[in-house]
């Protein structure tokens, strides 16, 4: 597949809108004018390439300080593919998250929960030749935010992906199965397509789980496909 073919548009409803009224911070930050459509050029179809030599891997977030962080150790693994099911090999993934008590190692996080000096909360992983990745961390805690009365974010891990072209750049959040806060969360619910929304929730996976050591969660990520859709979607154009 040529690395200069343009990426396809997103399917309707599968991406959140910039104006999401239930999420208060969008009010003054979303553009009022419609986005201007740009035919992709080399500036959009190509993108940065990262290597572990210059961007060292951090695939165990529990081993970044002198001691072990508090909390439940977990393994997160999955595969990065494009919309045609092609694996995206050797691509960099950045992750970051709150500690087990629901507090970030960040000076602006004022949540009244204990900091954990053994958990900086940053990870950086590269996919293998089949697009697969795996890292070890602790399960993050839920935390309150000021969006509305008694608002709490469902537990989540932030993900950043680059893919093979800058138009594939993706920032998202991985959620956990069975979290009662999901149905109350305006950020999660900003994605109107139910199937697309539910794919943000990782699945417990016994095959990733390691006996006597840690539970495993699977989170697969799909980046935009290049070129024409290989199948017709019948009358949606």
């Amino acid at each position: 597949m040529s690395d200069t073919l343009p990426f396809r548009p997103f399917a309707a409803g599968t991406q959140p809108p910039l104006d999401a009224p239930a999420y208060g911070s969008t009010h003054l930050r979303h553009p009022k004018r419609a986005l201007r459509k740009l035919a992709q050029t080399v500036s959009e179809t190509t993108g940065p390439h990262f290597t572990p030599a210059l961007f060292p891997e951090i695939n165990d977030l529990t081993k970044q300080a002198s001691g072990e962080p508090l909390g439940e150790r977990i393994i997160v693994a999955g595969q990065v593919t494009d919309e045609d099911g092609r694996p995206i090999p050797n691509t960099m993934i950045e992750v970051w998250q709150a500690n087990a008590a629901g507090r970030y190692a960040h000076p602006r996080d004022m949540h009244d929960a204990p900091a954990d000096p053994n958990f900086p909360g940053e990870g950086r992983i590269f996919t293998d030749t089949e697009g697969r990745y795996r890292f070890v961390t602790i399960k993050p805690g839920a935390y309150p935010w000021r969006n509305h009365h008694n608002a709490w974010r469902p537990i989540h891990i932030h993900f950043s992906l680059f893919g093979t072209g800058f138009a594939q750049r993706l920032i998202t959040q991985m959620y956990f199965p069975g979290d009662p806060l999901l149905n109350l969360d305006p950020i999660y619910h900003a994605v109107s397509d139910a199937a697309a929304r539910e794919r943000l929730v990782s699945r417990f996976d016994l095959a990733i789980t390691e006996p006597e050591w840690a539970l495993g969660y699977r989170f697969d990520i799909v980046l935009r496909g290049r070129g024409a859709t290989p199948f017709e979607d019948g009358g949606h154009h």
Binding site: P16, E83, P120
Partner: peptide, 18 residues
């Protein structure tokens, strides 16, 4: 074939990867 994974906000604490 699944569509592209949905975007979510980077949030106020992304500086953990800065």
């Amino acid at each position: 074939m699944p569509t592209a994974t949905a975007s979510q906000t980077i949030g106020p604490y992304w500086h953990l990867i800065e």
